[in-house]
């Protein structure tokens, strides 16, 4: 089995996000960037699938400026076999990204595409689903468990009512949730090995895709600061207070 894992470079989750003064996005200059944490879980899962003898090759792909190669190298250091970098400085939205991934999934002939359920920057939660639709293959999203049997994959999803089990025919798209696994540390010898692994660079034109953003952002602003709270002594007082604010019915 051949696995494609899609990773995105995002502002590190430990960084306190600051909005640019002109409202044109968030500050990324001089800010620590990392692999989207859900994507890291996807890479880890691919490695475990390979280590269990269910995959022969793991390809990692990322879309963006030259710097995304840092995140690809991280994935290679974790143990992925080779990387594909789609180099572009344009604004790439989920539909465009999924078209590129479709091209790669088909040309590489992969059996499984793993993605994070969403990226922590835009929180779109669309790319995996769009890819499955364009590819006309099954999708299982928000996986918190994943196993294989013959040409099928079984996933567990945490839904409101409990655990939902889905079986999909391969090739398929699986997006992963937080509790699927805990990504490994990169070991020093693997960091050294990652240097020697290849990253193929492709352009949008190579993949026959144009950026053509379909959604434009009107502005970004930080959330309103929280107002000071109020302490009440009794339940009656609380109900009264909530009614006065129109938050519960009289």
């Amino acid at each position: 089995m051949k696995i494609l894992v899609c990773i995105k470079r995002v502002v590190d989750y430990n960084v306190r996000i600051r909005v640019k003064p002109d409202g044109g996005g968030v500050v990324t200059d001089g800010v620590k960037m990392s692999m989207n944490p859900f994507d890291e879980i996807a890479v880890e899962e691919a490695l475990r699938i390979k280590e269990a003898g269910n995959a022969d090759e793991i390809i990692v792909v990322s879309i963006g400026a030259k710097q995304v190669q840092e995140q690809l190298r991280t994935a290679l250091a974790m143990g992925a076999d080779r990387g594909i970098h789609v180099e572009t400085t344009e604004n790439i939205q989920p539909l465009t990204a999924s078209r590129m991934l479709l091209n790669i999934a088909q040309s590489e002939g992969v059996d499984l595409v793993l993605l994070g359920k969403q990226a922590i920057d835009d929180d779109n939660n669309q790319t995996g689903q769009m890819l499955a639709a364009l590819w006309d293959r099954p999708q299982a999203t928000f996986a918190s468990g994943l196993s294989f049997d013959g040409g099928k994959a079984t996933t567990i999803r945490e839904v409101d009512a409990g655990l939902e089990v889905l079986e999909v025919d391969l090739p398929a798209v699986v997006t992963v949730d937080l509790r699927l696994n805990e990504p490994r540390y990169v070991k020093l010898p693997d960091m050294m090995k990652a240097k020697k692994k290849t990253i193929d660079v492709k352009t949008l034109a190579d993949l026959g895709v144009e950026a053509a953003p379909g959604v434009s952002s009107l502005g970004v602003r930080p959330p309103e600061g929280r107002q000071a709270g109020k302490k009440v002594e009794t339940v009656e007082e609380l109900v009264k207070e909530l009614q006065a604010r129109g938050l519960v019915n009289d």
């Binding site: 840092e70 190298r73 991280t74 250091a77 540390y185 990169v186 020093l188 960091m191 050294m192 990652a194």
Partner: peptide
């Protein structure tokens, strides 16, 4: 370099676990 950055970042991994 990439390796040097990863070596510098390693402490954060350890701290998260321990």
């Amino acid at each position: 370099s990439f390796e040097q950055q990863m070596i510098l970042d390693y402490g954060q991994n350890l701290a998260q676990s321990f």
